[in-house]
């Protein structure tokens, strides 16, 4: 009886394996080193998942790669040898490792997700594989500012206050503000120079930016983010509307006015001819 059960199990397994082999696709993740179906993602970073694809058929096939619906803000794409691909051609018995990249937005409420990956062979045969992603909330940082826009005059200095919050689960040390001002603007007195924040803690950066007197009038953005070795925050852009100092207007009008008066007096002295 026991022998009969064993024979039937082996036969069943063999049938399963045989029928699977008849489909011609092998998609597996666990038998190849460094390939797993469970990945950790960090907000603001790109995670690289790997899948192995083998053509077990006797002829060459082209396989179309696609993902299921991704959560909002996420972007996923396949890559082979550094090139983004939507399909791959494999010869008979050829095996290849494909990278699946997923860009994670900085602000996401998705903690865990499972993304179905679909591989469709050129003759319609389908295979799917689910890859799981778990959000690593250890290091997360957010900055904000109450300033919608600023008005300033050439040569002026403006003061900015940037709020910063540690939205992760671990302490963040050596945080420094990265300020990308327009060309020739000078960033002065970033206070504090470095910051340490515990989880949930927030603080305020104060900085002074000086606009060159030679700057042209117009709207210029100051792009700011905060970073340390573990994490980079979101980037905010503060538009500054720069106008030319009205002193120039008075100077020029004054010169014209003086010249006009001089001309009138000149005419009075020499008579209108």
């Amino acid at each position: 009886m026991k022998t009969k059960k064993t024979i039937f199990s082996v036969l069943f397994l063999l049938t399963l394996v045989f029928s699977f082999m008849q489909n011609g696709i092998q998609v597996f993740a666990s038998e190849v080193p460094n390939i797993t179906t469970n990945y950790e993602i960090v907000p603001g970073e790109t995670t690289n998942a790997r899948i192995a694809l083998e053509n077990t058929d006797t002829v060459s096939h082209t396989y179309t790669l696609s993902t299921g619906q991704l959560p909002e803000g996420f972007n996923g794409y396949f890559s082979l040898d550094g090139n983004v691909v939507n399909n791959i051609t494999l010869d008979a018995s050829q095996k290849n490792i494909i990278d699946f990249f997923i860009d994670v937005p900085l602000n996401t409420s998705v903690a865990d997700m499972s993304i179905p990956l679909e591989i469709i062979r050129d003759d319609g045969v389908k295979e799917s594989l689910s890859v799981s992603f778990t959000l690593n909330q250890d290091y997360a940082l957010s900055i904000s500012s109450n300033i919608q826009s600023l008005k300033a005059i050439n040569g002026d200095s403006i003061m900015l206050e940037i709020g910063i919050t540690n939205t992760g689960n671990k302490d963040l040390t050596d945080l420094s503000l990265q300020v990308d001002p327009p060309y020739k603007w000078i960033v002065e007195n970033v206070d504090p120079a470095n910051l340490t924040l515990k989880p949930g803690e927030n603080s305020l950066y104060k900085l002074k930016v000086t606009i060159p007197s030679s700057g042209q009038a117009g709207q210029y953005p100051i792009n700011i983010s905060c970073t340390n070795s573990d994490v980079t925050s979101n980037s905010i852009s503060i538009p500054v509307n720069v106008s030319t100092s009205v002193n120039y207007f008075w100077w020029i009008t004054g010169i014209i006015g003086v010249l006009l008066i001089f001309t009138i007096l000149y005419f009075k002295k020499h008579g209108r001819r």
Binding site: A217, T244, Y248, F249, I252, I255, I256, L260, F262, T263
Partner: peptide, 19 residues
Amino acid sequence: IKWIDVLGLLAPSIILWLL
């Protein structure tokens, strides 16, 4: 916004005209 440039075009003309 660019008033200084408009003035930069007008003012020299006015000054030269008076001269």
